[in-house]
Simulated scan of single mutants.
Amino acid sequence: MSVGYDKKVIASAISFDIKKGELAAIVGINGIGKSTLIRTIGKFQPKISGSINIDGNELETFDELEMATKVSVVLTEPIASKNLSVKELLALGRQPYTNWLGKLSAEDISIINNSVTLLELETFLDKKCFELSDGQLQRVLIARALIQDTDIILLDEPTTHLDLYHKVQILKLLKSIAHKTNKAILFTSHEIELAIQLCDKMLILDGVSNVFDEPCKLIENKSFETLFPSDMISFDPNTGSFKIKK
């Protein structure tokens, strides 16, 4: 597949698949097309060429409502209204399933409550979204995606603006959700070393081979060693970390 804007290709020769129960990351340097790819998979913009399939069906065959029951997305754009309470924002996750009045059923409420418990949001429910820290709001947005109850969850830079502890917390949470709820979770990230430790699969978007595999196999194949200019940054396969050349 090739992705881009206005027929201008940003990234091409992309080919990979993700299964239910897997956490996968898209990594690469700035401007290589990570966000463009995640937005294309989420049907926020058209692909340039190639195909995207969900359960063997072309992405284009799904209408808006069908997409909302198949794929949930957390993008980097600010939410429409931070004046909503956390409880109100979470309830919007059930919108694809409610009737035209938007009335929540007992099943809807149960799904919301389960996600609130999983992401430990009980103490935030009555707070306005603008009152939350970046880390708290990110957990709320992930909960909303989980409440949408789709097989696929896409996230663009879910750890942006977070400190190391909260970066690790969010990624460990995503891994737990993928494994425990059997969802396919795909996210973009600059946190390559954390992704190596926590992800089941990784796509290295480098504009050339765009390899996709388990982190250990990517290390064995020296796929990380050409990600950055070798005269400045080297990759240590023994520790799975990058070293600055002084």
Results as ranks from 00 to 15, higher is better:
Ala24Cys: 14
Phe16Gly: 07
Thr159Gly: 02
Leu92Trp: 04
Gln95Met: 12
Lys167Asp: 01
Lys34Arg: 14
Glu157Asp: 00
Lys8His: 15
Pro78Phe: 08
Ile219Gly: 07
Asp213Pro: 04
Ser176Gln: 11
Leu104Ile: 08
Leu227Met: 07
Asp134Cys: 00
Ile112Gln: 14
Pro46Ile: 11
Ile177Pro: 04
Tyr5Phe: 09
Leu146Pro: 00
Ser189Thr: 12
Met202Glu: 03
Leu194Trp: 12
Glu66His: 07
Gln138Glu: 01
Ile38Gly: 08
Lys34Trp: 03
Ala145Phe: 05
Pro96Glu: 07
Gly31Leu: 15
Lys128Val: 01
Lys20Met: 09
Ser209Gln: 12
Ile147Arg: 07
Leu174Tyr: 15
Val168Ser: 12
Ile192Thr: 08
Ile185Trp: 01
Lys243Phe: 04
Asn210Val: 10
Leu173Asn: 09
Glu64Trp: 09
Asn99Leu: 08
Thr117Arg: 13
Leu84Cys: 15
Phe212Ile: 05
Leu89Glu: 10
Val168Asn: 14
Val116Tyr: 07
Glu214Gly: 13
Pro237Cys: 04
Val71Arg: 14
Thr159Ile: 06
Lys180Leu: 03
His190Ala: 06
Asn210Pro: 05
Pro215Tyr: 06
Asn210His: 09
Leu92Met: 11
Asp236His: 03
Glu220His: 11
Asp236Glu: 00
Gly42Thr: 04
Ile79Glu: 12
Asn83Pro: 01
Ser12Thr: 13
Phe124Cys: 06
Pro158Ala: 04
Lys245Ser: 07
Ile219Pro: 06
Leu121Ser: 05
Glu191Phe: 02
Ile32Met: 12
Asp6Tyr: 02
Lys70His: 09
Val116Trp: 06
Lys172His: 10
Val9Pro: 01
Ser81Phe: 02
Pro215Asn: 11
Phe228His: 09
Val74Asp: 07
Lys175Asn: 15
Thr239Arg: 05
Asp156Lys: 13
Ser2Asn: 14
Asp6Gln: 05
Val71Ile: 12
Asp17Ala: 04
Ala178Tyr: 02
Lys217Pro: 11
Ala143Ile: 11
Val27Arg: 00
Val168Gln: 11
Ala13Phe: 15
His166Val: 00
Met1Cys: 04
Lys167Gly: 02
Ile219Glu: 05
Ile38Trp: 03
Leu186Met: 04
Leu104Glu: 09
Asn83Gly: 11
Gly42Ser: 08
Phe62Gly: 13
Asn57Thr: 15
Asp206Arg: 10
Leu84Met: 14
Phe44Glu: 15
Val27Ser: 00
Gly56Asp: 12
Ala25Pro: 00
Glu193Lys: 05
Glu88Gly: 06
Ser35Glu: 01
Val208Lys: 13
Lys43Asn: 13
Ala178Gly: 04
Ile52Ser: 14
Ser15Asp: 09
Lys246Asp: 03
Val9Thr: 15
Ser241Glu: 02
Gly28Lys: 06
Ser223Glu: 13
Phe187His: 11
Phe212Thr: 05
Asp63Pro: 06
